[in-house]
């Protein structure tokens, strides 16, 4: 663990962290968002959600994006996913611009979004078949079963998705995203609809699988504790309209992380205070 930090230390880091992002060498950057702008046309004229937003994410890094609701977090994520059109600027994934949705970006949606008429296995298999069309049926199934087991569903392969609890459904959602072997994981408040106990459980499950795969991950959340526990860096977005990256906080806890240790760490509360302070002003 690192040496304890004072609050002013964290504040001074602001400029440094923002500058560091600009200076990141392109080789280590996985996701590169350049001058991203999003404008929604409304009857009262144009509404600028994001303006000239810049963000770079390292290969294998886990970042959390927090901000007030309505600040454009979800707009940002859906644009990275390719589900939402870009008005201006560019999003590069491994140096290739994003033009539409694709399975190289595994999305974990806020609601589990499983197909209720399929079993857990079939839900994962649908994507795996798309990504590994050359594999034999057994190979494809084995991939699905591996990830379903990793999220703790080894007994529920053949259960209908509609028969699973919300928490279990979201576990399938996690397995589905990882099984695609994506270049990047996009998580849109994935645990927002769960009760706090299940949420904690699923954060552990997510981190456990993520620690093995180290896939670049971008997570949207409004839960400060979740952001700190999961991320290497927390990106704070200014409130909209014309939202941008307001501040960046490095979370310097070692991995793999243990919830209990982190909760007992002095820095945890400083990080927490800093984030809440940002959100309240």
């Amino acid at each position: 663990m690192i040496a304890t930090k004072s609050r002013s230390d964290l504040k001074q880091n602001r400029e440094k962290n923002l500058r560091e992002m600009e200076e990141m060498s392109l080789r280590e950057v996985s996701l590169d968002i350049k001058n991203l702008t999003k404008i929604y046309p409304t009857p009262k004229g144009e509404y600028v959600v994001l303006e000239d937003l810049n963000l770079r994410v390292r290969e294998g890094e886990f970042i959390s994006i927090i901000g007030h609701s309505g600040c454009g977090k979800t707009t940002l994520l859906t644009m990275i996913a390719g589900l939402n059109e870009i008005t201006g600027g560019q999003i590069l994934l491994n140096e290739f611009p994003i033009t539409g949705p694709g399975p190289d970006r595994g999305v974990i949606f806020q609601s589990p979004s499983l197909f209720p008429w399929m079993t857990a296995l079939e839900n994962v298999l649908l994507g795996v078949r798309q990504v590994f069309p050359g594999g034999s049926k057994k190979e494809q199934q084995d991939i699905c079963k591996y990830y379903l087991s990793k999220v703790g569903l080894e007994d529920s392969f053949f259960k209908k998705a509609s028969d699973l609890s919300q928490g279990m459904q979201q576990r399938v959602g996690i397995a589905r995203a990882f099984a695609l072997k994506p270049k990047i994981l996009l998580l849109d408040e994935p645990f927002g609809m769960l009760d706090s106990l299940t949420r904690g459980e699923l954060q552990d499950v997510l981190l456990d699988v993520w620690n093995r795969e180290k896939i670049t991950a971008v997570q949207i959340t409004h839960d400060v504790d979740e952001a700190i526990f999961l991320a290497d860096r927390v990106i704070m977005m200014t409130s909209g309209p014309k939202a941008q990256v307001g501040d960046i906080l490095k979370i310097e806890f070692d991995r793999p992380r243990d919830r209990k240790q982190i909760l007992e760490h002095v820095d945890y509360y400083k990080y927490r205070e800093y984030l809440i302070d940002f959100l309240e002003h």
Partner: peptide, 14 residues
Amino acid sequence: VNTDYINVARVLQL
């Protein structure tokens, strides 16, 4: 049809 389902289909490029 639930837009989430359609989004999943789009992400998977069905």
